[in-house]
């Protein structure tokens, strides 16, 4: 866990694209907010593993939003129930109900549908928020951090140089 956190901060401080990290946060948010054992999460996992996003960021976002989901479940339940009981959508739901593939996606489960719809609608907002946070972190926090005398002292030591060389040997960039 600590290693993953370290890798994440390393990526955050590296030259990795802010969009790659932001997309990782989005996918982690979706898989974290929705029930884990759902078919759509296979797709999320596939995207997270196949696309060049920051995987550590994805895992951390997943863990963070899994914690949030414990509080969020009743809200998701309300959203899902409202959607599933909406008169305008009854035709859609009835046709999906007879479709085995749709049933495997558990579309008729209140929390699954509610959390997924919320996560998809929140994804663009969260994407830009994430991007903004990454960019501003690098611009302000990282710059302020590197200017700290203690950090400059540490970076000038032989130990830091050794660590940098070892990281390069292990293919440290993410």
């Amino acid at each position: 866990m600590l290693g993953m956190l370290a890798r994440f901060f390393k990526a955050l401080n590296s030259e990795s694209g802010p969009w790659a990290i932001a997309w990782a946060f989005v996918l982690g948010m979706i898989i974290g907010l929705t029930p884990l054992l759902s078919m759509h999460n296979l797709i999320i996992l596939f995207l997270a593993m196949s696309l060049r996003i920051n995987f550590s960021g994805f895992i951390l976002a997943w863990l963070f939003f899994s914690g949030v989901a414990y509080v969020f479940d009743p809200v998701a339940d309300y959203i899902g129930e409202a959607l599933l009981e909406a008169q305008a959508l009854q035709g859609l739901w009835h046709s999906l109900y007879d479709n085995p593939v749709a049933r495997l996606f558990q579309f008729n489960h209140t929390i699954t549908l509610g959390s997924l719809v919320f996560a998809i609608l929140f994804a663009p907002v969260w994407l830009f928020i994430s991007y903004y946070l990454v960019v501003n972190y690098r611009k302000r926090v990282q710059a302020w951090f590197l200017k700290l005398k203690i950090v400059q002292a540490l970076r000038s030591t032989k130990l830091w140089g050794l660590y940098q060389r070892l990281s390069t040997l292990r293919g440290g960039s993410v």
Binding site: P74, D77, G80, E85, W93, Y97, D98, H109, I111
Partner: peptide, 15 residues
């Protein structure tokens, strides 16, 4: 249960 959710059936009762 609000914490566990529930499956809403759209069973037309024909199968």
């Amino acid at each position: 249960s609000r914490w566990e959710g529930r499956f809403i059936e759209f069973d037309d009762g024909d199968q």
